[in-house]
Design a protein around this nucleic acid. Structure first.
Lengths: 327, 327
DNA sequence: CTGAAAGCGCTAACAA
DNA sequence: TTGTTAGCGCTTTCAG
């Protein structure tokens, strides 16, 4: 049924070893026999069986990608960055959504390894990072990173600061911060630096814990407006939450940005779509994926890395949920 | 380094064949030796090498998933449906984004087959469906389907009709339809049935071709408002485009739904986030993914299918971009 | 019920 | 430069 290396060998009148040599550009092959082999390959439409290759070489062209939830619009961009770069370098992606669940993370990593993946790119809560250690293949963490492992992430310390700075400069005086899950380092960093900036500038603020979803954002927005009705600035933990805040504000007849200013985080497509459009901290998400892909390939090929930790810059994208210009 | 079946065999004092038998519940094994083997397995933390298995059995637990673009929020939901169901049934997903590009589609399918995937779930423009035929593994198409192949899709004929009906009943008289790419059957069906309904009810309409992105939606919205300024109802080819229309309408000071009503398609998260929230046709996207996964597993295990074509119902979700109630 | 042996498709010594 | 042989880790006859 399927055409194997033997069929090609027979067709070309050589041995399987020779076919293998032309396939891998290894050893010496006469130009003439090489041609004969190539012809046979084309003629029979032969495609090498990667599984057999993988078994012998104990390696493969597969990279495992472990993500929390591709349904959160931040991750598809990351995933495409990874995939596009890897594809271009001749690798394939096998992936799994873990919902941040340690068991799922372990399961996926196990089965990825059973499939001889040569590397792993993972976004995993720091509490679970032990599942990523002592593996027999290199690992690059993205977004959800730790000190110990190679990592690609955005500069959330600047990001948090930028967000706080923006609201302060736009004359907000009663700020509420919606704080994301602190197990994730990016969320931790941006919260810390934002609140630090506020403290340093003697701006009073409150904070509320919030999941990264639109639903929880809406819930927390309600509590927020009930609890702190005189709030004039909100720093949301991501764009989904910021969008929810905007939504609730409109519903309550609070005018943005006149009475209330809101700033998001991520700069996903939604932030441009909502009305008023959302001022937010832009993360180079796609680029982070590409970077992670490059990094894992370097690790696999034992190239030396310049840095184990690759930090990408963020910037503020001013739109209409804040008061811009002036000062 | 890695622990193999031989190590387990040695540890348990049996042959590799016996270990294999307990692993696969095949043949007869004394309860006592089974126990001994299990102990050795646990003790050594043995995990079978799927690659070796795959090579011998010429099969695997891998399913290939071919999607246009996971960055389009419709597809992550689909992908998760596929993944969650497959995971639950003991299979893994290997995937690729094709951007609707025939070459990428072929490339991915080839390499998936080289990795011994046992089945394929694909969303591919009907023009390219030849790449899906005569493969050595079963294929299920999702969303972008054809007559010939097993398929899971939503009832877009009803969907298109529902959208048109809604605007007509809400008293729209000058309707513009933003028509999606007609190579994709779902887009074709919903356009045909929508316009057919309009014709049958003697409602005048125009149409404009539009890509499925926010950017192109915005572009086409501008043209639309310039070209047909007295439009009072717009049927968009998906929610992203509808959101863009809404955005442009707000910018021009056109009041929705008073002066203009807009209806989207898909019911992605965004449709709830925008303001006014979007009336749209709900597709059971996640369920479609699950269904496709079930179907491919049945095909793989040679179970008979009730239908080759699994059509899932859609419904209209009324929100605030149309005038509801009344009549 | 269990072990020995062969083989899945490919690659890498080792001879020739 | 090329072919022969052995073996990657596993499963499955086939004897026993």
């Amino acid at each position: 049924m399927t055409v194997t290396i033997k069929d090609v060998a027979k067709e070309a009148g050589v041995s399987a070893a020779t076919v293998s040599r032309v396939l891998n550009n290894s050893g010496y092959v006469y130009e003439d026999t090489r041609k004969a082999v190539m012809e046979a390959i084309n003629h029979l439409q032969y495609k090498p069986n990667e599984v057999a290759r993988s078994l012998y070489k104990r390696t493969s062209k597969l990279i495992g990608l472990v993500l929390p939830d591709i349904t959160n619009p931040f991750f598809p961009a990351l995933a495409r960055g990874v995939e596009d770069k890897l594809q271009q370098l001749g690798y394939r992606v096998i992936f799994g959504n873990t919902d941040g669940d340690a068991t799922k993370e372990m399961d996926y990593i196990d089965t990825f390894l059973q499939h001889n993946v040569v590397g792993l790119i993972a976004s995993v809560d720091r509490l679970h990072h032990e599942v990523l250690t002592n593996l027999r293949v290199p690992v690059v963490t993205v977004d959800r990173t730790t000190e110990e492992l190679p990592a690609v992430y955005a500069d959330h310390k600047s990001g948090g600061r930028l967000a706080a700075e923006k609201l302060v400069r736009s004359a907000c005086e009663k700020i509420v911060v919606l704080r994301g899950p602190q197990d994730a380092k990016p969320l931790y960093d941006r919260f810390q630096s934002a609140t630090q900036y506020l403290s340093e500038n003697n701006v009073s603020f409150h904070y509320l814990d919030c999941q990264l979803s639109f639903e929880d954002g809406r819930q927390k927005a309600k509590e927020l407006f009930d609890q702190f009705p005189d709030t004039d600035g909100i720093i949301a933990c991501n764009d989904l939450v910021a969008a929810a805040v905007l939504h609730e504000a409109v519903t309550r007849g609070i005018s943005v940005p006149t009475d209330l200013q809101v700033i998001g985080y991520d700069n996903i497509t939604i932030s441009e779509i909502v009305h008023p459009s959302l001022t937010t901290i832009h993360q180079p998400t796609y680029e982070m994926g590409m970077k992670a892909a490059e990094m894992i390939i370097k690790l696999i090929s034992k190239e030396k890395l310049n840095t184990i930790h690759e930090q990408l810059p963020v910037f503020i994208k001013e739109r209409n949920s804040t008061v811009n210009g002036g000062i």
